[in-house]
Design a protein around this nucleic acid. Structure first.
Length: 415
RNA sequence: GUGGCUAUGGUGAAGUGGUUAACACUUACGACUGUGACUCGUACAUACGUGGGUUCAAAUCCCACUAGCCACCCCA
Protein backbone atom coordinates (compact mmCIF):
# COMPACT_ATOMS: atom_id res chain seq x y z
CA UNK A 1 0.00 0.00 0.00
CA UNK A 2 1.38 3.39 -0.93
CA UNK A 3 1.31 6.37 1.35
CA UNK A 4 -2.15 7.61 2.23
CA UNK A 5 -3.40 10.79 3.82
CA UNK A 6 -3.52 11.10 7.60
CA UNK A 7 -6.67 9.84 9.30
CA UNK A 8 -9.33 12.50 9.33
CA UNK A 9 -7.52 14.64 6.75
CA UNK A 10 -9.32 14.76 3.44
CA UNK A 11 -8.56 15.75 -0.10
CA UNK A 12 -11.10 17.94 -1.79
CA UNK A 13 -11.07 16.72 -5.35
CA UNK A 14 -12.16 18.34 -8.61
CA UNK A 15 -15.89 17.89 -8.85
CA UNK A 16 -16.16 18.64 -5.16
CA UNK A 17 -14.19 21.90 -4.98
CA UNK A 18 -16.70 23.69 -7.16
CA UNK A 19 -19.13 23.32 -4.29
CA UNK A 20 -16.58 24.84 -1.95
CA UNK A 21 -16.02 27.78 -4.28
CA UNK A 22 -19.73 28.36 -4.30
CA UNK A 23 -19.98 28.31 -0.52
CA UNK A 24 -16.99 30.60 -0.10
CA UNK A 25 -18.24 33.00 -2.74
CA UNK A 26 -21.64 33.17 -1.07
CA UNK A 27 -20.00 33.95 2.26
CA UNK A 28 -17.79 36.68 0.79
CA UNK A 29 -20.73 38.17 -1.02
CA UNK A 30 -23.15 38.18 1.90
CA UNK A 31 -20.63 39.17 4.57
CA UNK A 32 -19.29 42.08 2.59
CA UNK A 33 -22.83 43.40 2.13
CA UNK A 34 -23.04 43.50 5.89
CA UNK A 35 -19.79 45.44 6.09
CA UNK A 36 -17.38 42.67 7.00
CA UNK A 37 -13.76 42.57 5.83
CA UNK A 38 -11.64 39.48 5.53
CA UNK A 39 -8.82 38.84 7.94
CA UNK A 40 -6.23 36.11 7.48
CA UNK A 41 -4.47 34.84 10.54
CA UNK A 42 -1.99 32.00 11.06
CA UNK A 43 -2.96 28.39 11.40
CA UNK A 44 -0.45 27.92 14.21
CA UNK A 45 -0.66 29.87 17.43
CA UNK A 46 0.90 29.62 20.83
CA UNK A 47 -0.83 26.95 22.86
CA UNK A 48 -1.58 29.37 25.67
CA UNK A 49 -3.85 31.42 23.44
CA UNK A 50 -6.29 28.57 23.09
CA UNK A 51 -5.94 27.37 26.64
CA UNK A 52 -6.87 30.84 27.88
CA UNK A 53 -9.64 31.67 25.45
CA UNK A 54 -11.45 28.39 24.95
CA UNK A 55 -11.08 27.28 28.55
CA UNK A 56 -8.67 24.93 30.27
CA UNK A 57 -11.23 22.33 31.17
CA UNK A 58 -13.06 22.14 27.86
CA UNK A 59 -12.73 18.97 25.82
CA UNK A 60 -11.10 20.87 23.01
CA UNK A 61 -8.23 21.99 25.19
CA UNK A 62 -8.03 18.89 27.33
CA UNK A 63 -7.82 16.29 24.62
CA UNK A 64 -8.49 17.52 21.11
CA UNK A 65 -5.68 19.91 20.31
CA UNK A 66 -2.87 19.21 17.90
CA UNK A 67 -0.12 20.61 20.10
CA UNK A 68 3.60 20.18 19.84
CA UNK A 69 6.92 21.72 20.62
CA UNK A 70 8.78 23.38 17.75
CA UNK A 71 12.54 23.51 17.28
CA UNK A 72 12.74 26.64 19.38
CA UNK A 73 10.95 24.77 22.17
CA UNK A 74 7.84 26.88 21.84
CA UNK A 75 4.56 25.23 22.70
CA UNK A 76 2.40 25.69 19.64
CA UNK A 77 -0.98 24.41 18.50
CA UNK A 78 -2.76 23.97 15.22
CA UNK A 79 -5.80 26.18 15.69
CA UNK A 80 -8.92 24.27 16.78
CA UNK A 81 -11.18 27.25 16.06
CA UNK A 82 -10.92 30.70 14.61
CA UNK A 83 -12.11 33.25 17.15
CA UNK A 84 -9.05 33.12 19.39
CA UNK A 85 -6.60 33.88 16.60
CA UNK A 86 -8.70 36.68 15.18
CA UNK A 87 -9.07 38.29 18.59
CA UNK A 88 -5.35 37.89 19.23
CA UNK A 89 -4.67 39.77 16.00
CA UNK A 90 -7.25 42.39 16.88
CA UNK A 91 -5.48 43.03 20.16
CA UNK A 92 -1.91 42.63 18.91
CA UNK A 93 -2.35 45.17 16.13
CA UNK A 94 -4.46 47.44 18.31
CA UNK A 95 -7.17 47.50 15.71
CA UNK A 96 -9.46 48.85 18.43
CA UNK A 97 -7.39 52.04 18.52
CA UNK A 98 -8.30 52.75 14.93
CA UNK A 99 -11.92 51.79 15.48
CA UNK A 100 -13.29 49.73 18.34
CA UNK A 101 -16.07 48.61 16.05
CA UNK A 102 -14.69 45.93 13.77
CA UNK A 103 -16.47 43.45 11.56
CA UNK A 104 -14.18 40.68 10.39
CA UNK A 105 -14.56 37.37 8.66
CA UNK A 106 -12.19 34.51 7.96
CA UNK A 107 -12.17 31.11 6.33
CA UNK A 108 -9.77 28.25 6.52
CA UNK A 109 -8.80 24.94 8.07
CA UNK A 110 -9.12 24.07 11.75
CA UNK A 111 -7.73 21.02 13.50
CA UNK A 112 -9.10 18.83 16.26
CA UNK A 113 -7.84 15.44 17.25
CA UNK A 114 -11.12 13.53 17.38
CA UNK A 115 -12.34 10.25 15.95
CA UNK A 116 -13.65 11.10 12.51
CA UNK A 117 -17.26 10.44 11.60
CA UNK A 118 -19.86 11.87 9.28
CA UNK A 119 -19.42 15.63 9.07
CA UNK A 120 -16.51 15.60 11.50
CA UNK A 121 -12.88 15.46 10.49
CA UNK A 122 -9.53 16.15 12.09
CA UNK A 123 -8.86 18.86 9.56
CA UNK A 124 -12.07 20.67 8.87
CA UNK A 125 -12.93 24.08 7.56
CA UNK A 126 -14.80 26.96 9.01
CA UNK A 127 -16.04 30.25 7.70
CA UNK A 128 -16.45 32.60 10.59
CA UNK A 129 -17.38 36.17 11.34
CA UNK A 130 -16.66 38.31 14.37
CA UNK A 131 -17.88 41.72 15.48
CA UNK A 132 -16.21 43.71 18.22
CA UNK A 133 -17.22 46.84 19.99
CA UNK A 134 -20.99 46.67 19.78
CA UNK A 135 -22.85 45.86 22.95
CA UNK A 136 -26.22 46.79 21.52
CA UNK A 137 -28.48 43.81 20.74
CA UNK A 138 -29.02 45.24 17.28
CA UNK A 139 -25.75 43.59 16.35
CA UNK A 140 -26.86 40.24 17.74
CA UNK A 141 -29.88 40.39 15.50
CA UNK A 142 -27.86 41.58 12.55
CA UNK A 143 -25.26 38.84 12.87
CA UNK A 144 -28.01 36.24 13.10
CA UNK A 145 -29.76 37.75 10.12
CA UNK A 146 -26.54 37.67 8.14
CA UNK A 147 -26.05 34.02 9.00
CA UNK A 148 -29.60 33.21 7.91
CA UNK A 149 -29.09 35.22 4.76
CA UNK A 150 -25.99 33.17 3.97
CA UNK A 151 -28.01 29.97 4.09
CA UNK A 152 -30.85 31.33 2.03
CA UNK A 153 -28.37 32.52 -0.62
CA UNK A 154 -27.14 28.95 -0.78
CA UNK A 155 -30.76 27.96 -1.28
CA UNK A 156 -30.70 25.91 1.87
CA UNK A 157 -33.85 26.31 3.86
CA UNK A 158 -33.31 23.26 5.97
CA UNK A 159 -31.01 24.46 8.73
CA UNK A 160 -33.06 26.34 11.28
CA UNK A 161 -31.80 28.98 13.64
CA UNK A 162 -31.99 28.27 17.34
CA UNK A 163 -31.14 30.86 19.93
CA UNK A 164 -30.66 31.00 23.65
CA UNK A 165 -29.11 33.21 26.26
CA UNK A 166 -26.47 31.93 28.62
CA UNK A 167 -26.54 34.97 30.86
CA UNK A 168 -23.48 36.76 32.07
CA UNK A 169 -21.09 36.62 35.02
CA UNK A 170 -23.81 38.46 36.96
CA UNK A 171 -26.55 35.88 36.66
CA UNK A 172 -25.07 32.64 35.42
CA UNK A 173 -23.37 31.55 38.67
CA UNK A 174 -26.63 31.91 40.56
CA UNK A 175 -28.51 29.99 37.91
CA UNK A 176 -25.86 27.32 37.92
CA UNK A 177 -26.45 26.81 41.64
CA UNK A 178 -30.19 26.73 41.15
CA UNK A 179 -29.78 24.11 38.49
CA UNK A 180 -27.45 22.08 40.64
CA UNK A 181 -30.01 22.15 43.44
CA UNK A 182 -32.50 20.71 41.00
CA UNK A 183 -30.14 18.10 39.57
CA UNK A 184 -28.88 16.98 42.94
CA UNK A 185 -32.24 15.35 43.60
CA UNK A 186 -32.15 13.56 40.26
CA UNK A 187 -28.60 12.32 40.32
CA UNK A 188 -29.52 8.65 40.32
CA UNK A 189 -31.69 9.16 37.24
CA UNK A 190 -28.93 10.85 35.27
CA UNK A 191 -26.46 9.04 33.05
CA UNK A 192 -22.87 8.45 34.05
CA UNK A 193 -21.56 11.35 32.04
CA UNK A 194 -24.01 13.82 33.44
CA UNK A 195 -23.19 12.74 36.96
CA UNK A 196 -19.53 13.16 36.22
CA UNK A 197 -20.18 16.63 34.83
CA UNK A 198 -22.41 17.59 37.71
CA UNK A 199 -19.68 19.67 39.32
CA UNK A 200 -17.73 20.82 36.28
CA UNK A 201 -20.49 21.59 33.80
CA UNK A 202 -23.99 20.93 35.14
CA UNK A 203 -25.57 22.83 32.23
CA UNK A 204 -24.59 20.02 29.92
CA UNK A 205 -27.26 17.79 31.43
CA UNK A 206 -29.86 19.95 29.72
CA UNK A 207 -28.45 19.00 26.36
CA UNK A 208 -27.93 15.29 27.03
CA UNK A 209 -29.35 12.87 24.50
CA UNK A 210 -29.88 10.00 26.93
CA UNK A 211 -33.59 9.35 27.46
CA UNK A 212 -33.29 9.11 31.24
CA UNK A 213 -31.64 12.49 31.39
CA UNK A 214 -34.20 14.02 29.09
CA UNK A 215 -37.07 12.99 31.33
CA UNK A 216 -35.19 13.75 34.53
CA UNK A 217 -34.42 17.28 33.38
CA UNK A 218 -37.83 17.89 31.86
CA UNK A 219 -38.86 20.31 34.56
CA UNK A 220 -35.46 21.80 35.15
CA UNK A 221 -35.20 25.53 35.73
CA UNK A 222 -34.28 27.36 32.53
CA UNK A 223 -31.52 29.92 32.20
CA UNK A 224 -33.91 32.17 30.35
CA UNK A 225 -36.03 32.51 33.44
CA UNK A 226 -33.09 33.38 35.61
CA UNK A 227 -31.46 36.11 33.57
CA UNK A 228 -30.54 39.34 35.27
CA UNK A 229 -32.33 42.46 34.11
CA UNK A 230 -29.56 43.43 31.73
CA UNK A 231 -29.40 40.02 30.06
CA UNK A 232 -33.15 39.73 29.96
CA UNK A 233 -33.70 42.99 28.14
CA UNK A 234 -30.78 42.23 25.85
CA UNK A 235 -32.37 38.96 24.84
CA UNK A 236 -35.81 40.49 24.43
CA UNK A 237 -34.40 43.24 22.30
CA UNK A 238 -32.47 40.81 20.14
CA UNK A 239 -35.69 38.93 19.48
CA UNK A 240 -37.52 42.11 18.70
CA UNK A 241 -34.99 43.08 16.05
CA UNK A 242 -35.03 39.62 14.58
CA UNK A 243 -38.77 39.85 14.23
CA UNK A 244 -38.55 43.32 12.77
CA UNK A 245 -36.78 41.86 9.72
CA UNK A 246 -38.59 38.52 9.80
CA UNK A 247 -35.52 36.45 10.56
CA UNK A 248 -36.92 33.10 11.54
CA UNK A 249 -35.68 31.52 14.73
CA UNK A 250 -36.66 29.16 17.49
CA UNK A 251 -35.80 29.46 21.14
CA UNK A 252 -33.90 26.49 22.50
CA UNK A 253 -33.38 27.08 26.17
CA UNK A 254 -31.41 23.86 26.49
CA UNK A 255 -28.65 24.88 24.13
CA UNK A 256 -25.29 25.03 25.83
CA UNK A 257 -21.85 25.80 24.50
CA UNK A 258 -18.63 23.86 24.56
CA UNK A 259 -16.40 26.89 24.78
CA UNK A 260 -16.09 28.86 27.98
CA UNK A 261 -16.05 32.35 26.56
CA UNK A 262 -19.69 32.66 25.54
CA UNK A 263 -22.05 35.05 27.32
CA UNK A 264 -25.62 36.11 26.68
CA UNK A 265 -26.77 35.32 23.17
CA UNK A 266 -25.82 31.93 21.78
CA UNK A 267 -27.13 30.28 18.66
CA UNK A 268 -26.86 27.39 16.27
CA UNK A 269 -28.06 26.57 12.79
CA UNK A 270 -29.25 23.01 13.10
CA UNK A 271 -30.27 20.36 10.61
CA UNK A 272 -31.62 16.87 10.87
CA UNK A 273 -29.86 15.73 7.73
CA UNK A 274 -26.37 15.09 9.00
CA UNK A 275 -26.73 12.17 11.36
CA UNK A 276 -25.20 12.89 14.73
CA UNK A 277 -23.84 16.25 13.65
CA UNK A 278 -26.78 18.57 13.83
CA UNK A 279 -24.99 21.91 13.97
CA UNK A 280 -23.83 23.40 10.68
CA UNK A 281 -23.02 26.74 12.25
CA UNK A 282 -22.81 28.02 15.78
CA UNK A 283 -21.72 31.02 17.71
CA UNK A 284 -22.54 33.54 20.33
CA UNK A 285 -21.59 36.61 22.20
CA UNK A 286 -18.29 36.73 24.08
CA UNK A 287 -18.23 39.91 26.07
CA UNK A 288 -15.36 38.93 28.33
CA UNK A 289 -12.99 37.32 25.90
CA UNK A 290 -11.16 40.31 24.53
CA UNK A 291 -10.30 41.73 27.91
CA UNK A 292 -9.39 38.26 29.15
CA UNK A 293 -6.83 38.06 26.37
CA UNK A 294 -5.29 41.34 27.43
CA UNK A 295 -7.28 43.63 25.17
CA UNK A 296 -9.55 46.53 26.00
CA UNK A 297 -13.00 46.21 27.49
CA UNK A 298 -14.88 45.69 24.27
CA UNK A 299 -17.62 43.21 23.59
CA UNK A 300 -17.63 40.62 20.84
CA UNK A 301 -20.00 38.35 18.99
CA UNK A 302 -19.40 35.87 16.22
CA UNK A 303 -20.06 32.52 14.68
CA UNK A 304 -18.43 29.79 12.66
CA UNK A 305 -19.91 27.75 9.83
CA UNK A 306 -18.73 24.18 9.29
CA UNK A 307 -17.91 24.12 5.60
CA UNK A 308 -17.85 20.32 5.22
CA UNK A 309 -21.25 20.16 6.86
CA UNK A 310 -22.69 22.77 4.56
CA UNK A 311 -21.10 21.01 1.59
CA UNK A 312 -22.81 17.81 2.68
CA UNK A 313 -26.15 19.59 2.32
CA UNK A 314 -25.40 20.80 -1.19
CA UNK A 315 -25.74 18.84 -4.41
CA UNK A 316 -22.33 18.66 -6.10
CA UNK A 317 -23.73 18.23 -9.60
CA UNK A 318 -25.06 21.77 -9.74
CA UNK A 319 -21.74 23.55 -9.75
CA UNK A 320 -19.71 22.03 -12.53
CA UNK A 321 -18.71 24.19 -15.47
CA UNK A 322 -17.75 23.08 -18.96
CA UNK A 323 -15.59 24.51 -21.75
CA UNK A 324 -17.02 26.79 -24.40
CA UNK A 325 -15.15 25.24 -27.29
CA UNK A 326 -13.25 22.15 -28.37
CA UNK A 327 -11.01 22.43 -31.40
CA UNK A 328 -10.69 19.23 -33.38
CA UNK A 329 -7.56 19.21 -35.50
CA UNK A 330 -6.58 16.73 -38.22
CA UNK A 331 -2.97 16.69 -39.29
CA UNK A 332 0.11 18.42 -38.05
CA UNK A 333 -0.50 21.80 -39.67
CA UNK A 334 -4.01 21.89 -38.32
CA UNK A 335 -2.79 21.01 -34.86
CA UNK A 336 -0.43 23.97 -34.91
CA UNK A 337 -3.25 26.22 -36.05
CA UNK A 338 -5.60 24.83 -33.40
CA UNK A 339 -2.97 25.38 -30.74
CA UNK A 340 -2.57 29.05 -31.55
CA UNK A 341 -6.28 29.72 -32.04
CA UNK A 342 -6.94 28.12 -28.67
CA UNK A 343 -4.35 30.30 -27.06
CA UNK A 344 -5.75 33.48 -28.59
CA UNK A 345 -9.29 32.64 -27.57
CA UNK A 346 -8.18 31.81 -24.04
CA UNK A 347 -6.54 35.22 -23.89
CA UNK A 348 -9.92 36.82 -24.54
CA UNK A 349 -11.81 34.84 -21.97
CA UNK A 350 -13.06 31.82 -23.86
CA UNK A 351 -12.43 28.42 -22.30
CA UNK A 352 -10.99 26.15 -24.96
CA UNK A 353 -9.88 22.53 -25.08
CA UNK A 354 -8.14 20.53 -27.76
CA UNK A 355 -6.41 17.19 -28.21
CA UNK A 356 -2.72 16.81 -27.39
CA UNK A 357 -1.85 13.45 -28.92
CA UNK A 358 -2.88 13.60 -32.56
CA UNK A 359 -5.78 11.25 -31.96
CA UNK A 360 -8.42 10.29 -34.49
CA UNK A 361 -11.30 12.58 -35.23
CA UNK A 362 -13.63 10.18 -33.48
CA UNK A 363 -11.52 10.30 -30.35
CA UNK A 364 -11.45 14.06 -30.40
CA UNK A 365 -15.20 14.34 -30.90
CA UNK A 366 -15.77 11.90 -28.09
CA UNK A 367 -13.62 13.96 -25.81
CA UNK A 368 -15.43 17.15 -26.78
CA UNK A 369 -18.66 15.44 -25.86
CA UNK A 370 -17.30 14.01 -22.64
CA UNK A 371 -16.15 17.44 -21.49
CA UNK A 372 -19.61 18.84 -22.41
CA UNK A 373 -18.09 21.49 -24.63
CA UNK A 374 -20.71 23.82 -26.04
CA UNK A 375 -19.12 24.05 -29.47
CA UNK A 376 -16.64 22.12 -31.58
CA UNK A 377 -14.52 23.68 -34.30
CA UNK A 378 -13.12 21.30 -36.89
CA UNK A 379 -9.87 22.11 -38.65
CA UNK A 380 -8.28 19.97 -41.38
CA UNK A 381 -6.38 20.39 -44.63
CA UNK A 382 -9.26 21.90 -46.56
CA UNK A 383 -10.13 24.35 -43.76
CA UNK A 384 -6.55 25.49 -43.66
CA UNK A 385 -6.70 26.07 -47.38
CA UNK A 386 -10.09 27.81 -47.47
CA UNK A 387 -9.75 29.73 -44.22
CA UNK A 388 -13.24 28.61 -43.21
CA UNK A 389 -14.17 25.83 -40.81
CA UNK A 390 -17.33 24.17 -39.52
CA UNK A 391 -18.38 25.16 -36.03
CA UNK A 392 -20.75 22.66 -34.48
CA UNK A 393 -23.09 23.39 -31.62
CA UNK A 394 -22.98 20.15 -29.70
CA UNK A 395 -26.40 20.28 -28.09
CA UNK A 396 -28.27 20.76 -31.35
CA UNK A 397 -25.82 19.31 -33.86
CA UNK A 398 -26.23 22.45 -35.96
CA UNK A 399 -23.12 23.31 -37.94
CA UNK A 400 -22.16 26.70 -39.35
CA UNK A 401 -19.21 27.87 -41.42
CA UNK A 402 -16.98 30.38 -39.70
CA UNK A 403 -13.94 32.25 -40.86
CA UNK A 404 -10.80 30.97 -39.18
CA UNK A 405 -9.94 34.02 -37.12
CA UNK A 406 -10.47 34.57 -33.44
CA UNK A 407 -12.87 37.46 -33.87
CA UNK A 408 -15.39 35.60 -35.90
CA UNK A 409 -15.05 32.42 -33.86
CA UNK A 410 -15.56 34.34 -30.63
CA UNK A 411 -18.59 36.11 -32.10
CA UNK A 412 -20.22 32.87 -33.09
CA UNK A 413 -19.64 31.38 -29.67
CA UNK A 414 -21.55 34.20 -28.04
CA UNK A 415 -24.68 33.73 -30.05
C1' G B 1 -10.36 6.84 24.43
C1' U B 2 -14.88 3.11 23.75
C1' G B 3 -18.38 0.30 20.64
C1' G B 4 -20.68 -1.64 16.05
C1' C B 5 -20.24 -2.61 10.84
C1' U B 6 -17.32 -3.26 6.52
C1' A B 7 -12.77 -4.43 3.51
C1' U B 8 -13.03 -8.10 -4.14
C1' G B 9 -10.32 -3.91 -10.54
C1' G B 10 -10.43 3.28 -11.66
C1' U B 11 -16.00 2.94 -9.63
C1' G B 12 -20.51 0.13 -8.04
C1' A B 13 -20.65 -4.61 -7.01
C1' A B 14 -21.66 -10.72 -7.84
C1' G B 15 -19.35 -14.77 -5.89
C1' U B 16 -19.66 -18.19 1.39
C1' G B 17 -14.49 -24.32 0.00
C1' G B 18 -13.00 -26.99 -5.80
C1' U B 19 -10.58 -26.02 -12.76
C1' U B 20 -11.18 -19.40 -17.04
C1' A B 21 -13.24 -14.05 -10.24
C1' A B 22 -20.16 -12.75 -13.10
C1' C B 23 -22.30 -8.18 -14.42
C1' A B 24 -22.61 -2.86 -14.98
C1' C B 25 -20.13 1.78 -15.29
C1' U B 26 -15.56 4.21 -16.48
C1' U B 27 -11.27 4.23 -19.75
C1' A B 28 -8.86 3.02 -24.64
C1' C B 29 -9.42 1.56 -29.66
C1' G B 30 -12.55 0.16 -33.63
C1' A B 31 -17.45 -0.64 -36.74
C1' C B 32 -18.59 5.02 -39.56
C1' U B 33 -10.97 5.45 -43.55
C1' G B 34 -13.21 13.95 -41.54
C1' U B 35 -18.17 14.56 -36.81
C1' G B 36 -19.73 13.27 -30.53
C1' A B 37 -24.06 11.65 -27.60
C1' C B 38 -27.50 5.94 -29.21
C1' U B 39 -25.95 0.89 -30.84
C1' C B 40 -22.38 -3.04 -31.53
C1' G B 41 -17.40 -5.21 -31.07
C1' U B 42 -12.50 -5.70 -28.74
C1' A B 43 -9.14 -4.73 -24.55
C1' C B 44 -8.40 -3.81 -19.21
C1' A B 45 -7.61 -7.75 -11.54
C1' U B 46 0.15 -11.37 -12.10
C1' A B 47 -5.92 -12.44 -8.59
C1' C B 48 -9.99 -10.89 -3.85
C1' G B 49 -6.90 -4.94 2.70
C1' U B 50 -2.06 -7.12 5.32
C1' G B 51 0.08 -11.27 8.01
C1' G B 52 -0.63 -16.00 9.88
C1' G B 53 -3.60 -20.60 10.49
C1' U B 54 -7.25 -24.79 9.11
C1' U B 55 -7.82 -27.91 4.58
C1' C B 56 -5.94 -32.32 -0.65
C1' A B 57 -8.13 -27.41 -2.00
C1' A B 58 -9.94 -20.61 0.47
C1' A B 59 -11.90 -14.50 -2.19
C1' U B 60 -14.98 -18.00 0.45
C1' C B 61 -13.66 -20.98 7.46
C1' C B 62 -10.50 -19.21 12.00
C1' C B 63 -7.05 -15.59 14.43
C1' A B 64 -4.35 -11.10 14.58
C1' C B 65 -3.30 -6.52 12.50
C1' U B 66 -4.42 -2.33 9.53
C1' A B 67 -7.75 0.88 7.15
C1' G B 68 -12.53 2.98 6.22
C1' C B 69 -17.37 4.09 7.80
C1' C B 70 -21.01 5.00 11.55
C1' A B 71 -22.07 5.78 16.65
C1' C B 72 -20.63 7.28 21.93
C1' C B 73 -17.85 11.42 24.06
C1' C B 74 -17.51 16.32 22.32
C1' C B 75 -18.26 19.61 18.61
C1' A B 76 -18.52 23.30 13.19
Amino acid sequence: MSITAIKGFNDILPGEVEKWHHIEAAARDVFSRFGFSEIRVPILEKTDLFARSIGDTTDIVEKEMYSFIDKGENRITLRPEGTAGVMRAFIEHKLYALDPLSKLYYMGPMFRYERPQKGRYRQFHQIGAEVTGVANPKIDAQVLTMLSRFFTELELDEPTLEINSLGCPECRPAYRETLKEFLRLKLDALCEDCCRRFETNPLRALDCKVEGCKTATAGAPAMLEHLCTGCDTHFASTREYLELVSTRYRINNRMVRGLDYYTRTTFEMVTGLLGAQSAVAAGGRYDGLISDLGGPQVTGIGFAVGVERVALLLDAAKFSSSPDLFIVALGEQSERRAFSIACELQARGVSVEFDYDGKSMKSQMRRADKLSCSFTLIIGESELASGKAPLKEMATGVQTEVTLDTDSIANHLKS
